[in-house]
């Protein structure tokens, strides 16, 4: 018999609740909670992908919102041209074009910027990933055709076979399944030889180099995978909001993604999802009380960093259970 650890039980329980509760709320006349859960699942995909490089790879990327934003624009720009003309080769509402485009654009952006960022380390890496994300932010703001500062309203969602994204239940279902796939994918990656090298390089890069591994290439590959996954999350987010603005890739969004990972517990399977859940719920709860909700929120963030090391998963760790 397979014996599951406490942590695996928790993972299964949380994911089961996340699958069942939102549709139940929706069907009993509370569509708002389904929307909340859809946004949560999408942001959790981005957090899971960030966890691959931040948690397992030890690479503190402060620019992950740029991938989410680029992914959203990869949905929005073809739809914009389809609605308003121009650039015929790009104009489409087909999700089978838009979503691969989002993933490809983000993978390419990750490859180019990652190649430069990964030459640096430590605090340089944090700042340069942040700066590149801000570069994309300002680039989008400067393009008036796509709304600049005001963003892009797309009245049409991606058209996919089988699922209809205009149906909130379908959109949630797709986001949820994508989240589960993302979690399994990252879990598979970190347990592979590739993932072992990545984690080894986090602890001691010199040793891995001496062992003959090209640490730079491993890290770049992980960075590209992570960026592409966040791009996919961005494509979903664009479909969810149907309003795409540069604000999606503001650096505070990147900070929030990092916070989700750390809050839930870096380098764990469930951690980023748990972090996203607590983050979104806290945000909703606090912002319904006061417009000054950033104040308690900021204090909570500081308290987590100062006092709760290892995040929620660290607190929940059972006796005798080692890190995954």
């Amino acid at each position: 018999m397979i014996s599951l650890t406490r942590r695996s039980w928790l993972t299964l329980a949380v994911m089961a609740l996340l699958a069942v509760l939102p549709p139940v709320f929706y069907l009993t006349g509370n569509p708002y909670y389904l929307d909340l859960a859809t946004r949560l699942a999408i942001l959790a995909i981005a957090a899971v992908s960030l966890n691959l490089i931040l948690g397992y790879g030890g690479l503190v990327s402060f620019g992950h919102a740029a991938f989410v934003g680029l992914g959203a624009y990869a949905v929005g720009i073809p739809a914009h041209h389809w609605l308003y003309g121009g650039l015929d080769f790009l104009a489409t509402t087909s999700g089978l074009v838009q979503i691969p485009l989002a993933v490809a654009v983000c993978a390419l952006f990750a490859l180019v910027t990652g190649a430069i960022c990964l030459r640096t380390k430590g605090v340089y890496f944090i700042m340069i990933t942040m700066a590149f994300a801000q570069m994309i932010y300002y680039l989008i703001v400067s393009i008036e055709e796509y709304g600049g500062d005001d963003g892009l309203v797309i009245d049409t969602r991606s058209e996919l076979p089988v699922v209809n994204l205009d149906n909130p239940l379908h959109l949630f279902g797709l986001s949820y399944v994508a989240l589960v796939v993302a979690m399994l994918l990252v879990r598979m990656i970190v347990r592979s030889r590739f993932g072992m090298v990545l984690q080894g390089a986090k602890g001691n890069p010199e040793r891995m180099v001496t062992l003959g591994f090209n640490v730079y290439a491993y890290r770049l590959t992980a960075y590209v995978i992570s960026g592409a996954m966040s791009g996919f999350a961005g494509a979903l987010l664009g479909n969810f909001t149907t309003f795409i603005s540069p604000e999606m890739m503001d650096w505070s969004r990147s900070g929030e993604l990092m916070f989700m990972v750390i809050l839930g517990g870096a380098a764990t399977t469930l951690g980023p999802v748990l972090g996203a859940i607590v983050f979104i719920v806290a945000e909703e709860a606090l912002s319904s009380f006061t417009i000054y909700w950033h104040l308690p929120f900021g204090l909570m963030l500081m308290a987590v960093v100062l006092f709760a090391r290892g995040g929620l998963m660290g607190m929940l760790r059972g006796r005798g259970e080692d890190r995954e």
Partner: peptide, 11 residues
């Protein structure tokens, strides 16, 4: 440090 001071910005 980055996350702690990020919280401080919000505050």
């Amino acid at each position: 440090q980055v996350l702690g001071t990020f919280g401080l910005i919000l505050v």
